[in-house]
């Protein structure tokens, strides 16, 4: 990478992007208040909300028009994912969209792709490549009947009659143990280098969209902390006027502002110059998982003891910062992948 090359640094959204963001912000604000999030616990799936999202076309919008989609870009998807994260929406949108895009890229039968795009069945992806029969935790596998996995050098769609058994977890998400041997129907989607490339790209996309959701989550946690700090008083002044309170909140804002931009930039590169900066989605994910972890924790702390109680909405955010960012595996592994790209390319 030439650090001095002359590139545009335009982080503005165009009218269509602003409209997409506004529409989904509006939808999620109306359809997913904190009671909906609490009501979906512990499995973390609101079928009604998911159904309404599907009628908006989220399952198909990012597919090519030739596959019945609208050619929505990764930039559109990160804008939507941020709004989803802002309200902690209990829907498997990220896994399902990423896995559906894998089906399309692998050239799966059109009927299968359109069924996934309509949400006739729920599909997710196994993040860790599989070489034996060892089980792994797969995000959203407690609601999905279909799992896309890289088995040795083949990309395979494995389907079962029902989803996996939910395991209780910190973030109240539909997490399940999964192994490729449990009575699944198998369809080989791709083999060899192509299979590996599709899987690698999909994992990066999942991290990118999850990063966007984590930005929304951290931003919402910040807003809760700021509103609390404006009204709560101590020693005759609002606590938000004290630098011991305001500076930690500012640091959340610094993290959110930068990470949002990094997510957008990573989405743009993945969309328009795929392959040229493969580390960017991973960087966005690393930054977002730390921004959300720090931001939700710091905001809960601003709430004092109230922020430690399950009644406070900030508790929902705190528990999902790790609850969402660790679904794809260890963040250290992600960091090592960034290091490998940097050490290979610099």
């Amino acid at each position: 990478m030439d650090r001095f090359e002359l590139r545009s640094q335009d982080f503005s959204l165009d009218e269509d992007q602003l409209a997409v963001r506004a529409a989904f912000a509006d939808f999620f604000a109306k359809e997913c208040p904190p009671e909906t999030v609490r009501g979906a616990e512990p499995r973390g799936f609101d079928a009604d909300l998911w159904g309404r999202l599907l009628t908006l076309g989220v399952g198909s919008m990012s597919l090519p028009t030739t596959a019945g989609g609208d050619d929505a870009t990764l930039v559109d998807l990160v804008l939507i994912a941020e709004e989803l994260g802002r309200v902690l929406a209990p829907v498997p949108l990220i896994s399902h969209v990423v896995a559906t895009r894998m089906l399309e890229r692998a050239g799966a039968p059109a009927s299968l792709i359109s069924a996934a795009a309509r949400g006739d069945f729920l599909v997710t992806l196994a993040h860790a490549p599989v070489t034996g029969g060892a089980r792994q935790l797969v995000p959203d596998a407690a609601v999905a009947t279909h799992v896309v996995a890289l088995l040795d050098d083949k990309l395979v769609l494995l389907s079962a009659d029902g989803p996996g058994a939910h395991v209780s977890n910190q973030g109240c998400t539909p997490l399940a143990w999964w192994r490729p041997t449990d009575g699944h129907d198998r369809t080989v989607l791709a083999a060899g280098a192509k299979a590996g490339a599709i899987h690698t790209d999909a994992v990066a996309e999942w991290r990118l969209l999850t990063a966007a959701a984590l930005v929304g989550m951290a931003d919402a946690a910040l807003r809760l902390g700021v509103e609390f700090a404006k009204t709560r008083r101590t020693l005759g002044v609002p606590i938000g006027s004290l630098q011991g309170i305001s500076f930690p909140l500012v640091d959340i804002a610094v993290g959110v502002g930068g990470t949002r931009h990094l997510v957008w930039k990573a989405a743009w590169y993945a969309q328009h110059e795929p392959g040229s900066r493969p580390e960017l989605p991973l960087m966005a994910f690393d930054a977002a998982s730390r921004t959300a972890t720090h931001g939700t924790s710091a905001s809960a702390h601003v709430h004092g003891g109230l922020g430690f109680s399950v009644e406070a909405d900030i508790s929902l955010y705190f528990l999902r910062a790790k609850g969402w960012s660790l679904l794809g595996g260890s963040t250290s592994a992600n960091l090592r992948e960034i290091g490998s790209v940097i050490a290979g390319a610099a």
Binding site: G257, T259, H261, M283, G339
Partner: peptide
Amino acid sequence: DAAVLERLGRAATEIELAVCTPGPLGRVK
């Protein structure tokens, strides 16, 4: 040493993050 890769990855990420952080937020970052 995997720890070396992690530290290089973190430094590179933080630089990219700082480049992307706007205005006064960027000043702090």
